[in-house]
C-alpha cells in the first residue's frame, strides 16, 4: 500500500484538488445559471421573431442571429483572452473563478440559444395554431405551449450545455480562472505529477457522467410524447 500512502501524502491531491474542484463547480454553476437564463431568452426571441413566427420582426431576428453566429465562430480559447479587458471592467478583476464566468457565459449562451431555437421549432405548428384559435395571447403561447411542449428537448440542451461548460471551465483555468483545469496544468503538466493529472481526469469524467445521467433522467420524466 505504499503508493496509496504516497498519494495521501501528496498535498496537491489532499489540499489543492478539493479546492480546485469547488472552484470548478462555482464556475460551472454561476456561468450555467447565466447561460441558461440569457440563452433561453435569446432562443425564445429568435424563434418568435423569425419569419412566420408568432411576432415576426425581421431586423431583430437578422441582427440577433448575426451576433450569435459571430460569437459562436470565435474559438473559446481566443474569446476568453480577447474578453480580458471587458471582464476586468465588468467585475473588477480578470483573475479567478468569478472572472472566468464572464467569458464562459458569453462563450456558451449563444450556443444554448441556438439549441433552444431548434427545440422550439420542433413544436408542431398545428399545436401553436390550436392555441391561437383558442384565443391565447402570444405570451401565453410561449409560456403555456412552446416551452412546456419543447421541454424534453430543452432539458437535453441544458445537459449538453452544462457538459460543454465543464470543458470550457478547464480551459478558463489556464488564464487564471482556477479550478481543475489550472490544477492539471500546474501540477500535471509543469511538475510532471502524473497522479494529479489522472485524478483530475477521473473527476472530470465522473462530473460529466453525473450531469448527463441526471439530465437523461429528467428528460424521461418530462417527456410525455
Amino acid at each position: 500500500m505504499n503508493w496509496f500512502q504516497e498519494l495521501l501524502a501528496n498535498p496537491a491531491l489532499t489540499e489543492a484538488l478539493p479546492e480546485a474542484f469547488v472552484e470548478t463547480l462555482v464556475m460551472v454553476g454561476i456561468s450555467g445559471v447565466f447561460t441558461l437564463v440569457i440563452g433561453l431568452a435569446l432562443g425564445v426571441i429568435l424563434h418568435v421573431t423569425a419569419p412566420g413566427g408568432l411576432r415576426p420582426v425581421s431586423w431583430l431576428h437578422v441582427l440577433l442571429s448575426a451576433v450569435i453566429n459571430v460569437t459562436r465562430s470565435i474559438p473559446y480559447a481566443i474569446l476568453m483572452v480577447a474578453l480580458i479587458p471587458f471582464t476586468a471592467w465588468l467585475v473588477g478583476t480578470s483573475i479567478g473563478p468569478i472572472a472566468a464566468c464572464v467569458s464562459l457565459t458569453i462563450g456558451t449562451a449563444p450556443f444554448f440559444a441556438r439549441l433552444v431555437e431548434t427545440s422550439l421549432r420542433e413544436v408542431p405548428s398545428g399545436t401553436v395554431d390550436a392555441a391561437r384559435v383558442m384565443g391565447s395571447t402570444r405570451g401565453q403561447i410561449v409560456r403555456k405551449v412552446l416551452l412546456p411542449e419543447a421541454m424534453p428537448g430543452l432539458v437535453a440542451s441544458i445537459t449538453t450545455t452544462l457538459v460543454m461548460l465543464v470543458g470550457y471551465s478547464a480551459m478558463a483555468g489556464l488564464i487564471g480562472g482556477g479550478g481543475l483545469g489550472r490544477l492539471a496544468y500546474n501540477y500535471g503538466y509543469q511538475r510532471f505529477d502524473t497522479a494529479v493529472m489522472i485524478a483530475t481526469i477521473v473527476i472530470m469524467v465522473i462530473l460529466v457522467q453525473l450531469i448527463q445521467w441526471i439530465g437523461d433522467r429528467i428528460v424521461r420524466a418530462v417527456d410525455h410524447r
Binding site: G126, T127, D129, A130, A131, V145, P148, E149, M151, V222
Partner: peptide, 11 residues
C-alpha cells in the same frame, strides 16, 4: 375548432 390531428398539448 376541431383539427384533423386533434393538435393536443403532449405535455
Amino acid at each position: 375548432m376541431v383539427f384533423q390531428h386533434a393538435n393536443l398539448l403532449d405535455s
